[in-house]
């Protein structure tokens, strides 16, 4: 009760102090319960879906994929490549955020399908308002202004080029309550030499009387996993446009069947001249089942012979 009243008082004080500018901001902020668009001029921008030229500082949209699992393949030179298969299931632009309306440029991408009965009413309202089919997963990707796409644009797996590097974000698997060795990589304590009941313990947590406390942020045992993690510079080995599958090298966070988010790599930037910008626009008359998988180029130098 006391906390509530204190919050109330502070809020009232804030309102009182902010009252004169609030009144001067016109009635635009007070019309929160109307469904009518406020100004027609705000939605007048028309985004043209046509291929453009990618500037070095432009940022394309990312995509949503489902982690299907891992396998291993042999490349052209007989080296084994650990592979994660990602499935870009029906990616579509579900909302465009513009500087004039939201204050920034971003694209909201939807992935998968969902039935209306499985969604809550506000979610259904969002899809209805945007005029896109119901989606299983939504994610917003900040883009630069030249990389904007209209609502309803489908994102193909050819948005990415085999051989480029991407960053893959996902939610890691839950590991439960873990000790310091597994959670933080502590060395533990000796197995012998008189160590008693403390082989995997974390050891000291601080100093003596001088601070007299354990510092905040001390690495200690605790819950591990179920965190958002980004694996950077994941190499795209192969794409399959017919089935919207993506073969990437190495691991990505999350369990099988989890959603991961793929963006162009920040550090190992792909060549801007090779990437389709803002995205790949499939020709109208193509047959999706006839498309062949595209494998990354492995170069002409045998890596095994070049080592000598």
């Amino acid at each position: 009760m006391a906390a509530a009243s204190r919050g109330l008082v502070s809020r009232l004080r804030h309102l009182l102090s902010a009252a004169p500018p609030l009144r001067s901001l016109s009635f635009a902020q007070l019309r929160s319960f109307t469904a009518e668009p406020e100004f027609e001029t705000t939605t007048s921008r028309i985004i043209d879906p046509k291929p453009g030229v990618m500037a070095p500082d432009s940022r394309r949209t990312g995509t949503i994929a489902v982690k299907c699992g891992m396998t291993a393949l042999w490349d052209k030179w007989g080296a084994r490549v650990p592979i994660t298969i990602l499935w870009m299931d029906d990616n579509i632009v579900s909302q465009v955020k513009l500087p004039e309306s939201e204050g920034f440029c971003a694209l909201q991408i939807g992935c998968g399908q969902k039935k209306e009965k499985h969604l809550r009413k506000p979610e259904v309202g969002h899809f209805r308002a945007q005029g896109v089919p119901m989606k299983r997963k939504l994610r917003e990707f900040p883009v630069t202004e030249d990389a904007l796409l209209p609502v309803g644009t489908t994102l193909d797996v050819r948005h990415f080029v085999p051989g480029q590097y991407v960053d893959v974000t996902g939610i890691t698997k839950g590991k439960g309550f873990q000790g310091g060795m597994k959670r933080w990589g502590f060395k533990g304590m000796p197995a012998s030499h008189g160590a008693s009941l403390s082989h995997r313990s974390i050891g000291s947590t601080g100093q003596r009387d001088a601070p007299g406390k354990v510092f905040k942020g001390k690495k200690m045992p605790g819950h591990m996993g179920v965190e958002q993690r980004t694996v950077k510079n994941v190499w795209i080995y192969k794409i399959d446009p017919a089935r919207n599958l993506l073969w990437v090298r190495g691991q990505v966070p999350g369990a099988t069947g989890n959603f991961v988010f793929i963006k162009d790599a920040v550090y190992k930037k792909p060549d801007v001249t090779l990437l389709p910008f803002p995205t790949y626009f499939a020709p109208e008359d193509e047959d999706p089942s006839q498309l062949e998988p595209i494998v990354a180029d492995h170069g002409d130098i045998d890596p095994f012979m070049a080592a000598d």
Binding site: V66, I85, Q113, K115, R243, T256, G257
Partner: peptide, 27 residues
């Protein structure tokens, strides 16, 4: 049979099952 690689489109299955199915097909 025409699109044996893809699971049925609108069916609402658990995603990990769909993912494992895809892995089996690819394997």
């Amino acid at each position: 049979s025409a699109a044996s690689e893809l699971p049925p489109r609108i069916k609402f299955k658990r995603l990990d099952k769909t993912a494992r199915h895809i892995m089996q097909i690819i394997d």
